[in-house]
Design a protein around this nucleic acid. Structure first.
Length: 588
DNA sequence: CACAAGGAGTCGT
DNA sequence: ACGACTCCTTGTG
C-alpha cells in the first residue's frame, strides 16, 4: 500500500477514479443526534459532512464564513440552463448504488409514485464541504500555514478529474480554473423553478439573475423548504412548502437589496429580532443551490420537517442519465475527499477518529485545532477538560455554555466530524486505530503517518524517547519511537524505521532540542518554521536513518522541496537559507 | 562556494 | 503508484 501523505494544493498529477464508490452508509437514517434542538438535524449534519473538498486555495475565493460574508465566487458566470425541473429540496439522480437513499425520479416507463424515499441533501453536502475544508485549515491564503489534513493533491485531482470528465480544459488562470466544480460548489444559481416540477418560477429569477453580486441566500430562499428551516430555524420553521412562495418572495426582495449593499449586514439583519444565529457554520454551508439546475439535480419536497423525504413524486420527472452519471463521481469524490480530510486530521493531531474515544488531551487537541481552523475567538480550554465521550454527549447549549462565543460552531464542527467518521465504513483509520495511536494495520501507508501522530501531538503524547536520545543513538531511539508510536506498542515500522517520512524525521529531531538543537531547531514553533543549523549533520542523520550512506543535504533538501508540492511544507514568507516551514497541521 | 529550485530518471515497497 | 533517492542544470547571494 502506498504511503499516503497528504499532498498540497494544486499540483497533483492524477486521481484514481476507479476507487470511487458511492458510500451509502454515509447517509444513515438512524442517526441519533446529540443536541438536536430546533432546526439542525443530525442526519442533515451527517449529510453535510459527507461533502467534497472545495476549491484549491490559490484559485478560489472562499467566503470568510466566520464573518458572514456570503460572497460566493461572484465573478464566476453561470452558463447553461438545464431543462426545467422542480426546484426546492434536493434531488439526487438515482443510481444503482444510491437509489435506495435518493428520491427516485420515476422513469417514464415506470409511472409509479415514489413515496417517502430518503433524499440526499446535495446542496448541504457540497456546500458544507467547502466550508469544512476551510474549517480544516484550507484557505486561499496560501501564504499562511493552512494546508491541513486535507490532501490537497486529491483535491486538485478532483478538480482536474472533473474538468477532464465534464468540461474542456481551461487554462489554469486563477478563478477561471476548474469551472465545473467551482460552479457546483461556489456559484449561486439565480434562477430556480417551481417545486412541482412543471414550470419555472418567475418570482425568484428577477432579483438575483440580474445581479452579479453574491446572493446565495436569495437562491436559497427561493428553494425554501428544509434548508430554509435548517438555516433560519425558528423563522420559517412552521411554514410548509406550499406556503413558501409568497413569503419567500417578500423576503427575497427585501434581502436582495440588502445584499447588494452588504451581505454581512444583511445576514445579521436576517437573524436579528430575537432569532438565534447559531449553527452559523452550517447555515453558511447551505447557501448555494446553483448546481441543482446545472446538473439536473431535482429538488424534492423535504416535507414540513425537512428531513429529506419525498412524497408522491409524479412520474415523468426523470433526470437524464447523463446527469446521473456526472453527479455520481462528483458525490463520490466529495465524500471520499471529506473522509480523507478527517483521516488526515486524525493523523496530524494524533487523535482517534472516533471522538468518543478521545482522552481529555485529545479533546484539548481537537478543540485547539477547531479553534484555529474555524478562526474562533478564544476558547476556554478548561471548559473542555473532558474526555471524548463526555464531549460527544454535550448538547449545543452545553457547548455554548462552555464557550459562549463559539460553542455553536464547535458543536457543529464536532457533529460533522462524528457524522463523517461514524458513518464511514471505509474509515480504515478508525478501524485500525489503537488507543496508543498505533495503527495496527500492517500497511506501512497507515503506519507511517501514525508516527506523525505522536510527534505532532507533541506535549500531549510525547514519548520519553523523544527527549532523551543521544546523538548517535537518536536514530535508533527515534526510529523506535516512530515505530512504536511513542508507546510500548512495539515496532510497527518495517526495516527499523526506514519507512519514516523525512518530514516526520525532521520533526523528531525538532522535538529533541536538547539533543539536536545544534543542528535543527524551531524558529517559530507555532507556525512550523524551523531552521537547519547544520545541514551536513542533519543529512547524515537522515542518511543513517534511511540507511543511505550517500545522503547529503543536497538530496535531503530536494526531498524537502518535494513537500512543497504535497502541502507538507511550504516556502517561508521570506526566503531564508536553510529555513523551512511545515504546513498545517504537520507543524502541530 | 553553499544553497535554492526544479526536471528527470531510478529504485524499493 | 508512490515516495524517496539520485543526478543534473540553472540561478542567487
Amino acid at each position: 500500500m502506498p504511503q499516503t501523505v497528504p499532498t498540497a494544493a494544486g499540483y497533483s498529477p492524477s486521481f484514481d477514479y476507479s476507487t470511487f464508490q458511492f458510500d451509502l452508509s454515509l447517509l444513515p437514517e438512524d442517526y441519533s443526534p446529540v443536541g438536536d434542538q430546533l432546526g439542525l438535524k443530525s442526519s442533515q449534519i451527517k449529510q453535510e459532512a459527507c461533502s467534497p473538498r472545495p476549491g484549491s486555495p490559490t484559485i478560489y475565493q472562499s467566503p470568510p464564513y466566520q464573518n458572514g460574508d456570503l460572497s460566493l465566487s461572484p465573478n464566476y458566470s453561470h452558463e447553461g440552463s438545464s431543462p426545467g425541473y422542480p426546484t426546492s429540496p434536493y434531488y439526487v439522480p438515482r443510481s444503482p448504488q444510491s437509489a435506495q437513499f435518493y428520491p427516485i425520479s420515476p422513469e417514464p416507463s415506470a409511472k409509479q409514485p415514489v413515496k417517502r424515499e430518503k433524499s440526499l441533501d446535495l446542496l448541504a453536502i457540497l456546500q458544507e464541504s467547502r466550508l469544512l475544508a476551510e474549517s480544516l485549515g484550507y484557505r486561499e491564503d496560501s501564504t499562511d500555514c493552512t494546508v491541513p489534513c486535507t490532501p490537497p493533491r486529491s483535491e486538485e485531482d478532483i478538480y482536474n478529474s472533473l474538468d477532464a470528465d465534464f468540461l474542456p480544459k481551461k487554462e489554469d488562470t486563477g478563478v477561471q480554473a476548474h469551472p465545473l466544480l467551482k460552479e457546483i460548489l461556489f456559484k449561486e444559481e439565480p434562477r430556480s423553478v417551481s417545486s412541482n416540477g412543471s414550470s419555472s418560477s418567475s418570482s425568484s429569477s428577477t432579483s438575483s439573475s440580474t445581479s452579479s453580486s453574491p446572493s446565495p441566500s436569495c437562491e436559497f430562499e427561493s428553494n425554501g423548504s428544509a434548508l430554509r428551516e435548517l438555516l433560519f430555524k425558528g423563522v420559517t420553521r412552521k411554514e410548509n412548502l406550499g406556503e413558501m412562495p409568497d413569503k419567500l418572495s417578500e423576503l427575497k426582495v427585501e434581502r436582495s437589496q440588502e445584499e447588494l449593499v452588504n451581505p454581512l449586514q444583511k445576514e445579521e439583519q436576517l437573524f436579528k429580532d430575537g432569532q438565534k444565529s447559531d449553527h452559523q457554520l452550517l447555515r453558511e454551508v447551505l447557501r448555494d443551490t446553483s448546481f441543482q439546475r446545472k446538473y439536473n439535480l431535482r429538488p424534492v419536497d423535504l416535507g414540513g420537517v425537512g428531513t429529506g423525504y419525498v412524497e408522491d413524486m409524479e412520474a415523468g420527472e426523470c433526470v437524464g442519465d447523463l446527469a446521473r452519471e456526472q453527479l455520481e463521481p462528483v458525490l463520490s469524490l466529495a465524500i471520499q475527499q471529506l473522509q480523507k480530510d478527517f483521516d488526515n486530521t486524525c493523523v496530524a493531531l494524533g487523535i482517534h477518529p472516533e471522538p468518543r474515544r478521545w482522552s481529555a488531551a485529545d479533546v484539548a487537541a481537537w478543540v485547539q485545532w477547531a479553534r484555529r481552523q474555524l478562526q474562533l475567538p478564544l476558547v476556554p480550554l478548561e471548559s473542555f477538560n473532558v474526555d471524548g465521550a463526555t464531549l460527544a454527549a454535550l448538547t449545543e447549549e452545553e457547548f455554548c455554555q462552555r464557550a459562549p462565543q463559539c460553542g455553536s460552531m464547535l458543536h457543529a464542527q464536532l457533529e460533522i466530524w462524528k457524522a463523517a467518521v461514524e458513518e464511514s465504513p471505509r474509515n480504515t483509520l478508525a478501524a485500525s486505530w489503537s488507543p496508543a495511536g498505533v495503527v495496527q494495520s500492517p500497511s506501512s501507508a497507515v503506519a507511517s503517518p501514525t508516527i506523525g501522530n505522536t510527534t505532532t501531538t507533541g506535549n500531549l503524547k510525547e514519548s520519553p524517547c523523544t527527549v532523551d536520545f543521544s546523538d548517535d543513538e537518536d536514530e535508533d531511539c527515534a526510529s523506535g519511537q516512530g515505530a512504536s508510536g511513542g508507546s510500548a506498542g512495539g515496532g510497527k515500522m518495517r526495516n527499523g524505521g526506514s519507512h519514516i517520512h523525512l518530514w516526520q524525521f525532521l520533526k523528531e529531531l525538532l522535538q529533541s532540542p536538547s539533543v539536536h538543537g545544534s543542528c535543527i531547531r524551531w524558529l517559530d514553533r507555532g507556525k512550523g518554521v524551523f531552521k537547519i543549523e547544520d545541514s551536513v549533520r542533519v543529512a547524515r542523520l537522515w542518511g543513517k536513518r534511511k540507511n543511505r550512506p550517500a545522503m547529503n543535504y543536497d538530496k535531503l533538501s530536494r526531498s524537502i522541496r518535494q513537500y512543497y508540492k504535497k502541502g507538507i511544507m511550504k516556502k517561508t514568507e521570506r526566503s531564508q537559507r536553510l529555513v523551512y516551514q511545515f504546513c498545517h497541521p504537520y507543524c502541530l
